[in-house]
């Protein structure tokens, strides 16, 4: 099935097709890696919306990438519960292991490192999401192993 066909199938499950914008954008992002102008146009055409509308919606939500990102996404929760138990040390360990600052992508385009607002694993902090799969709790000393697993993946 083409992306447009998949989107139309999702849209059929809602009373109004515009409700399918978020799932459609997610699907387009999965296929394109980020929400490029082409990806936005495909979503817009499939749902009979404008690319500008799709961009205005996508830019509201943190999980949509309006710029290219690495093949893997490492997100470290730094909200208060995780921060109280050492999230900053975990984040700095990732910075040093990956050789990037928070918000950046490694030079080989493999890994993007981000700080994340409360991931909802507060009792098991620090929460780290690797490609949206949670690891909890993560301590700074666990980071080298996680990074080497990422390089092998």
């Amino acid at each position: 099935m083409t992306l447009a066909e998949q989107i139309r199938e999702i849209a059929a499950g809602y009373p109004q097709s515009r409700s399918a914008v978020l799932p459609a954008l997610r699907l387009a992002q999965e296929q394109h890696g980020w929400l490029s102008p082409d990806a936005l146009r495909e979503v817009a055409d499939a749902l009979d919306l404008t690319p500008a509308y799709c961009q205005s919606v996508a830019s509201f939500y943190d999980m949509f990438h309006m710029k290219p990102v690495g093949r893997h996404l490492v997100e470290v929760c730094t909200n208060i519960s995780c921060a109280l138990v050492g999230a900053q040390q975990v984040l700095e360990a990732f910075e040093s292991e990956l050789g990037v600052k928070t918000g950046e992508t490694t030079a080989d385009g493999e890994v993007t490192l981000r700080a994340l607002e409360c991931a909802g694993g507060c009792g098991w902090g620090t929460v780290v999401a690797i490609d949206h799969r949670y690891r909890e709790p993560v301590r700074a000393e666990d980071v080298p192993t996680i990074v080497s697993e990422l390089h092998d993946a």
């Binding site: 730094t78 900053q88 984040l91 928070t102 918000g103 981000r114």
Partner: peptide, 12 residues
């Protein structure tokens, strides 16, 4: 302090 220098996503 325990929250010293913690990076918030808004800084990104």
């Amino acid at each position: 302090a325990s929250l010293e220098g913690v990076m918030a996503p808004v800084d990104q």
